[in-house]
Computed example of a mutant assay.
Amino acid sequence: MPELIKKLLFWGFIAFLIYFMAFRPEGAAEMFKAIGAALVAMFQGFGDFLTSLMT
Rank of each mutant, 00 (worst) to 15 (best):
P2T: 13
P2Q: 10
P2V: 10
P2N: 14
E3G: 11
E3I: 13
E3K: 12
L4N: 04
L4F: 02
I5A: 12
I5K: 12
I5L: 12
I5V: 12
K6E: 02
K6P: 02
K6Q: 03
K7G: 05
L8H: 14
L8Y: 12
L9V: 02
F10N: 08
F10K: 11
F10D: 08
W11S: 15
G12A: 03
G12K: 02
F13D: 11
I14R: 04
I14V: 09
I14A: 03
A15F: 02
A15P: 00
A15C: 09
F16I: 14
L17T: 06
L17W: 03
L17H: 04
I18L: 15
Y19Q: 08
Y19S: 10
F20H: 07
F20L: 05
M21Y: 12
M21H: 14
M21E: 13
A22W: 15
A22E: 14
A22H: 15
A22R: 15
F23P: 00
F23R: 15
R24V: 11
R24W: 08
P25M: 01
E26V: 15
G27A: 11
A28V: 05
A29L: 14
A29S: 15
E30G: 12
M31C: 07
M31F: 09
M31R: 10
F32A: 05
F32H: 03
K33Q: 05
K33Y: 03
K33H: 04
K33L: 06
A34R: 08
A34I: 04
A34F: 05
I35H: 03
G36V: 01
G36Q: 01
G36P: 00
A37Q: 08
A37P: 09
A37S: 11
A38N: 13
A38Q: 13
L39R: 08
L39A: 13
V40Q: 03
V40G: 04
V40K: 07
V40F: 04
A41M: 04
M42A: 07
M42D: 09
F43A: 08
Q44H: 08
G45D: 01
G45E: 00
G45W: 00
G45Y: 00
G45N: 05
G47P: 02
G47Q: 06
D48P: 01
D48M: 02
D48H: 01
D48K: 03
D48F: 01
F49C: 05
L50S: 12
T51F: 11
T51L: 11
T51D: 15
T51V: 14
S52N: 08
S52W: 02
S52L: 06
L53S: 00
L53T: 00
L53Q: 03
L53I: 04
L53N: 00
M54L: 07
M54F: 07
T55F: 06
